[in-house]
């Protein structure tokens, strides 16, 4: 197999240390959902759908002063090399939780008392960094649904591969590498909403990786913004007449 980082400092797929994989975000791809988005992030292909705010079932789950945010991250059985059992795994349950907690700080849930907001992430094809890719899609889907938000949430991982700190690990690098650090932020408020780390990093490497991840998040924010702009402002200059 090829080296994870060759003599020219290039990674096994030809990227430099601080390069992202190719990313494509599309907003509003499902008819039924109140908001939706599709993201390709390397080989990841993920659909995000938002339903809500809507009535809560069962009713006793409703909260009097805010919306209940529910999140499901799920991998299709055909999304992986060997078939994945369709029942939710412990990994998927944990990711559903951290994704929910990464999105919630940005959503103004107090504006929607007694309702539920459901976020579904379906991983059609998986690659490294699917939770970050999913968060990016979910956050634009929420904006597409017109739910009040303090900010978007932008996510990107950094890590250590072949002894070097790199941005955005793919599947191979995730498996063969030494560390993976997924991070999500609210880019206009400089707040971290998701942070996980596995692997070994020295304190210096940690600080470098964290910095790389923040840089990646900022790039993702631009892509999210472009995707929303394209869907909503594809034409012309803004005008509005006074009406009613």
């Amino acid at each position: 197999m090829t080296a994870l980082i060759n003599e020219q400092g290039l990674r096994h797929d030809g990227r430099r240390i601080e390069d992202l994989r190719p990313i494509k975000i599309e907003v509003g791809i499902l008819k039924n959902a109140n908001g939706s988005a599709y993201i390709e992030f390397g080989k990841n292909k993920i659909i995000a759908a938002v339903y809500g705010p809507k009535e809560v079932h069962p009713k006793h789950m409703a909260l009097p002063d805010r919306a209940v945010l529910r999140c499901r991250y799920h991998m299709s059985p055909f999304s992986t090399d060997t078939r994945k059992n369709p029942a939710p795994s412990r990994r998927e349950i944990e990711i559903s939780k951290v994704v929910r907690e990464a999105l919630e700080p940005a959503i103004m849930i107090n504006d929607y008392p007694r309702t539920a907001i459901d976020v579904f992430l379906e991983v059609l094809q998986s690659d490294g960094g699917s939770r970050c890719a999913g968060i990016n899609a979910a956050s634009v889907a929420l904006a597409d649904a017109g739910i009040n938000m303090r900010d978007l949430v932008s996510a990107c991982a950094a890590g250590k591969v072949g002894g070097q700190v790199v941005l955005d690990l793919d599947d191979t690098e995730d498996k063969e590498g030494q560390a993976d650090v997924p991070v999500a932020i609210m880019p206009n408020f400089d707040q971290v909403t998701l942070f996980q780390l596995d692997g070994i990093l020295t304190q210096e490497e940690f600080k470098k990786a964290f910095g790389f991840a923040l840089g990646g998040c900022r790039k993702l924010y631009q892509l999210q913004k472009e995707a929303l702009m394209k869907k909503y402002f594809g034409h012309g200059e803004p005008i509005v007449e006074e009406n009613e």
């Binding site: 904006a143 017109g146 009040n148 938000m149 909503y232």
Partner: peptide, 24 residues
């Protein structure tokens, strides 16, 4: 003042608002 929606921001005498383009 931060926008909470996708929409058109207006800043005028009366104040600041965003006319949203989507939402329930």
């Amino acid at each position: 003042f931060y926008s909470t929606r996708v929409g058109m921001a207006e800043v005028g005498h009366e104040g600041v608002r965003v006319i949203p383009l989507s939402g329930p």
